[in-house]
Design a protein around this nucleic acid. Structure first.
Lengths: 325, 325
DNA sequence: TTGTAGGCGTTATCAC
DNA sequence: GTGATAACGCCTACAA
């Protein structure tokens, strides 16, 4: 900036005014300064600006696993909300299973950020006792509620109620659940929702089998389930396993949905397989990201009180459920 | 930092030494300072540090579309390389189709970054004339070569040679190609590679049909292709369309691979469908990201000369190709 | 309209 | 081993 000032024969302050588009600059001077800027390839220095303003215009993001379903679209939502606010996203990887929320939060605090969004797929050891950095809007992507931080998550519990109620209304009474891995928080909440809904509607609860999210594990479970002559519907904790289950049933001569209905979660197969006809739950993951970002910004303000945001899923009705009435 | 100094009864300089773990500090003093730090919740200020050092320890990233296949795993690779170097990633969204490389590069330069990685899915209008910011390692994720910037990309051209040569060796002569959308650079390079390889091996070239990457468009194309009695193999520009093609052929009584062999690209179906048996090309997308990051760092150094990095794909042999010999 | 002074938080350098 | 000083680039406040 000093160089530009010298080149244009003005003070640094005038250069600063031009750089920020302030109005109180003579038109001739402005042109001269802009010429000097262009000539020297001037770009305002981020550190100087931030040091002065105390702001970074960026929000930190730490995801436990970028590849996990849902995180991708969430990043998309965060980025788009950030762009609208003139913000960037500063991202770091968390590979350490044992890292506490405090550690992660400290790491992010050392980056140029005004707030942070943290997703920890496993339960952090210090989840409940964690205190966010003062003045830092801190948002957790989590189904667990937190005393001091806003938590945002797709409603992994409510989606099961939606499914069970839909199946019950279609006349189903024996509704099996196929779970994901036992360490998965999402799977656990989906299972709890299924169980609670069954109990609420007075339907029988049978201990669920668990897979590993992948289609092949769904196939294996489908083979086992095919022996069950009571069930009329299967609710799978994700779409991939649902696909495997359907294949296994069909290989055994059990028709879907004529003999058994199947419902998945995520709506992750569209475009991947031809004539995708799986009834499933779709979450608004863009909104998940956008909401998290908005709260990370709001959270800086003094009067802010943390919220619990659960973004509902929508049932996408396709052809894998039969109405028994 | 001044507060910590006062609390511990030492100078700021000593606090700085402790914060940076320098050795020339008395053990007693160190303990006292650390206690003060903990008490006041001291975190070093990013802006101050950067202003001093002229470094940010972050690399800028601008992807045209995070959701595009390959970008996700690439982000993963970039993040993991970044973490190993103690770097963060500063990300912005680019939604503007008409944005020039210069515009994007300027935007990123205003962020706290020491280098940048840019992916523009469409051809930038100023691609060839673009000059990177001096002192900024600038890496383009692109199949097009650039005079001044390192370009990194999965080898979208070579993968087709691999496929064609493999099919030729299995005795196939009539090998159709199914393209993606015409604006897709990846699809164009895959097609060019297929064509060049066919010509090289003296095999007949038939004008390819184009889909939209999705499985259903593959199904439609499969229906049309099923009329072709000459072909013994189909090479699809991605796996989803390949799946649609296979479904269409089978619906018409054409067996895969007994009657027609099918090969895809991306290896994107594993886990998504049960008993995935599609022969395909797998790219090392983590490496794509890691390499891009490494070069963005190296590119800052004065002696650095830009490189053209093409990361080869690997043929994943499964069951959808028949050996005609 | 333009210029000057000062300070944001950090650390390199030199003096003690 | 520790402290004082200055400087990184920018912008607010004030003076001219």
């Amino acid at each position: 900036m000093a160089d530009v000032a010298r080149e244009a024969g003005v003070s640094q302050q005038t250069v600063s005014r031009v750089a920020n588009g302030l109005s109180n600059v003579n038109e001739d001077t402005r042109v001269r300064v802009q010429a000097a800027m262009a000539k020297l390839g001037f770009r305002p220095n981020f550190a100087g600006r931030s040091l002065r303003s105390g702001q970074y215009n960026s929000v930190g993001l730490c995801l436990y696993d970028v590849r996990e379903f849902g995180n991708l679209a969430t990043v998309d939502g965060i980025l788009s909300a950030a762009r609208e606010h003139g913000y960037a996203i500063t991202m770091i990887e968390n590979v350490d299973d044992n890292l506490s929320l405090k550690d992660v939060s400290h790491k992010i605090t050392e980056l140029p950020v005004d707030g942070m969004i943290i997703s920890m797929s496993l339960m952090a050891s210090d989840f409940d006792s964690f205190k966010p950095q003062p003045g830092m809007g801190t948002v957790l992507l989590s189904m667990y509620e937190h005393p001091c931080c806003t938590t945002v998550e797709s409603d992994q519990y409510g989606c099961s109620w939606t499914v069970v109620e839909y199946l019950k209304n279609a006349g189903h009474r024996n509704i099996r659940f196929v779970a994901g891995p036992s360490y998965s928080i999402d799977s656990n909440f989906r299972q709890k929702g299924w169980e609670d809904a069954l109990v609420h509607f007075g339907l029988p609860v049978v201990q669920p089998l668990a897979g590993n999210w992948l289609a092949d594990s769904g196939y294996e479970i489908g083979c086992k389930l095919s022996a069950d002559t009571e069930m009329t519907a299967i609710y799978s904790a994700n779409d991939q396993m649902a696909l495997g289950i359907i294949a296994a049933l069909q290989d055994r001569g059990i028709r879907v949905p004529e003999d058994v209905s199947v419902v998945g979660v995520d709506d992750s197969l569209e475009g991947y397989i031809p004539h995708c006809n799986l009834t499933t739950i779709r979450f608004d993951l863009l909104k998940r990201g956008r909401t998290a970002f908005e709260h990370a910004l709001l959270g800086r303000k003094p009067g802010y009180t943390p919220e619990i945001v659960r973004i509902p899923g929508r049932l996408i009705v396709r052809d894998t459920v039969r109405n028994l009435h």
